[in-house]
Simulated assay, not measured.
Amino acid sequence: MRPKTCVVTGASKGIGRGIAERLGADGCDVVVNYRSSEAAAAETVDRVEAAGGSAIAVQADVTNLAEVEAMRDEAHESFGPVDVLVNNAGITQDVRFTEMSHEEWDTVLDVHLDGTFHCTQAFYDDLADAEEGRLVNISSIIGKEGNFGQANYATAKAGIFGFTRTLALELASTGSTANCVAPGFVLTSMVEELPDDIKETIRADTPLGRLGTVEEIADVVTFLASDRSSFITGEVIDVNGGKDL
């Protein structure tokens, strides 16, 4: 039986890197997508292979359908049809709504929503034809709660909820699933750079009293990517330390 082939977008660092590495530990073949961080993507490939998987790094801007389709072709050439797609690529451009430009609005929605659309469209036939295809979309607690200065990001992440549930319905007849993971505040480099008082406020507002780890998000994603999740579809899985309790 061949290893599962997995595509993880935005996998050069942070949560995407953690997901790719964890899939490698499960023996998967992993396509490490990146937009511009070639050296960091190469490091992710090394980590996947050290964990026990096989990997290649593939450059593609998820907002560009032609580049996404080229990534699909390279994935097919290297590993064959794709069984798992993890739509993780994302950016932030934070600014108060009254000062937000249309460009700042469009740029964030393009990556999160157009990027998710492009990648899912490119790999849809693979997922539908797989014995048990898996679509896992990464959203955020911000899509549920909103956040000051993040109208663009919150809107994009909320849109991923509806997209996931619709794809779950459309994939259901094929036996493949679509789910969404909505992390809370996780110790990535971006969060670690926040002022200490803000991090302490986040901890105090979280029932478990701490921030999450990349590994905790990756464990949930890889469970949803596995055969063990066969009867779970259309769900938004919150991994946020109980913030919505």
Rank of each mutant, 00 (worst) to 15 (best):
F185K: 00
L127V: 07
I91V: 15
A11F: 03
S226K: 10
D26I: 04
V7L: 05
S101V: 11
S229R: 12
E77D: 15
R2L: 12
T9P: 00
G18T: 04
Q121F: 10
D26N: 13
V7R: 00
C119I: 00
D129R: 14
L135V: 00
I198D: 06
Q59F: 05
T155P: 14
L171A: 05
S140G: 07
F79S: 07
A128G: 12
S226G: 13
G80W: 08
H76G: 13
L224C: 06
G18L: 09
W105T: 06
D205A: 14
G52R: 09
A128K: 13
I198A: 09
D29Q: 14
S36C: 10
E99G: 14
I56V: 13
R17K: 14
T174F: 01
A154V: 06
A168L: 06
L65K: 12
V181F: 05
R228Q: 15
D125S: 13
S78V: 07
G149L: 03
A154E: 03
F123M: 03
A130D: 05
A42L: 10
V58N: 03
G209E: 07
A178E: 01
A57E: 05
H76R: 14
G80F: 08
I142D: 03
I217E: 01
V214M: 02
P195W: 02
V86K: 01
G14M: 04
T63Q: 14
D106I: 07
S101T: 15
E38A: 14
A156E: 09
R2F: 11
N87A: 06
L23I: 06
V32I: 11
V221Q: 04
V186P: 00
S229C: 09
S173N: 12
D205T: 04
I141T: 02
G18C: 08
G149K: 06
K144R: 14
E200M: 09
D196A: 15
L194M: 12
D114C: 10
K13C: 07
A70L: 09
D219K: 15
G241Q: 00
G27D: 10
H76E: 13
E145H: 11
E103R: 15
I138L: 12
Q93G: 10
Q93P: 08
A178K: 00
D205Q: 13
S173L: 08
V220A: 11
I232Q: 12
P81K: 06
H118C: 08
T177Q: 06
A182P: 04
L85Y: 01
G14R: 03
D94C: 11
D227T: 05
P183D: 01
T206Q: 05
D114E: 10
S226T: 09
T201I: 11
F79E: 04
Q59P: 11
R2Y: 10
D73G: 15
S140A: 03
I15K: 03
T92I: 14
R17Y: 02
G162M: 09
V111Q: 09
G24M: 05
V239M: 06
G184I: 01
V68D: 00
A55I: 01
D219T: 13
V45W: 03
H112L: 13
D238I: 00
A75I: 04
A40Q: 12
F223E: 04
G80Q: 08
L171W: 06
N147S: 10
